[in-house]
């Protein structure tokens, strides 16, 4: 971690949110930056790219999804969505538009900061290009395309491996059904969620200690899956 504190941009029009989030971020060792509108947020990102962005979807001047799309055109850092809209479609759309994660209002500060930490760490890992990822006794070598559990190699079909690799590459993040299907099966199969269920079942059988209550390969109901590696 560098000497300067990571800058976190919070884009939300609700003053009450800033009122507690600013001291909370500050206390957790971040440098909070406040933006009240989508336009102000975008110009802040452009001026001085923050280390992470927390974005509210309900903004007065423009739709949060549009802010997200515009930001993703020139900003590559972690981006967490804050939304009172608990509708699945909104979440999925945000993730498809390039958000790393989402937190539903109302939320505890602890949860938000934990997600923020995961997002920041994954970015760093990706920047370093770490070739091997571990989760408990599971080890995944993305260069050699080898997966081991408790030291013994695990046999995966090519599809299973591709699916696992996609999840691992985006570790910590929710990868939507559509993103997974497009990456592994191609755009033509983007709607066949049933495939995913079957292959995720196989992966859990092979990698999880207890496939019924997975620890590494997590389901985000109605949205997608998430790979959780070791912290």
């Amino acid at each position: 971690m560098t000497a300067s504190r990571p800058r976190i941009l919070v884009i939300d029009d609700e003053p009450q949110i800033h009122r507690f989030l600013t001291p909370a971020l500050d206390a957790a060792g971040y440098e909070p930056v406040r933006a009240d509108t989508g336009a102000a947020g975008l110009s802040e990102i452009a001026k001085q790219p923050p280390d992470a962005v927390i974005l509210d979807l309900g903004l007065p001047d423009m739709d949060g999804q549009d802010v997200l799309r515009s930001a993703r055109a020139f900003y590559d850092g972690p981006l967490i969505i804050l939304s009172a809209r608990d509708r699945e479609l909104e979440k999925i759309k945000a993730l498809d538009n390039g958000a790393d994660d989402y937190v539903e209002k109302p939320f505890g500060v602890g949860e938000l900061l934990a997600r923020l930490r995961v997002a920041l760490r994954n970015r760093m890992v990706r920047d370093v290009g770490e070739p091997s990822v571990s989760a408990g006794d599971v080890e995944i070598d993305l260069v050699k395309r080898v997966v081991r559990k408790a030291g013994a190699p695990v046999r995966l079909s090519p599809r299973e491996y591709d699916l696992l690799a996609t999840l691992v590459e985006g570790r910590g993040r929710v990868i939507t059904h559509r993103q997974l299907l497009t990456a592994v099966w191609g755009p033509a199969n983007a709607d066949d969620v049933q495939y995913l269920r079957v292959f995720m079942g196989h992966l859990r059988q092979k990698l999880e200690d207890d496939p019924a209550s997975p620890r590494w390969l997590m389901t985000e109901p109605g949205v997608g899956y998430r790979f959780v590696g070791d912290v």
Binding site: F20, A24, A27, R85, P106, V109
Partner: peptide, 28 residues
Amino acid sequence: NSISHDLRTPLSTVLGAATTLIDYGGSL
């Protein structure tokens, strides 16, 4: 949509402020 937004926004503040106090109360 409106009810869910207008009820949740104050709840967010209450929950967010309370958890901030719980987690970082000492350092504020």
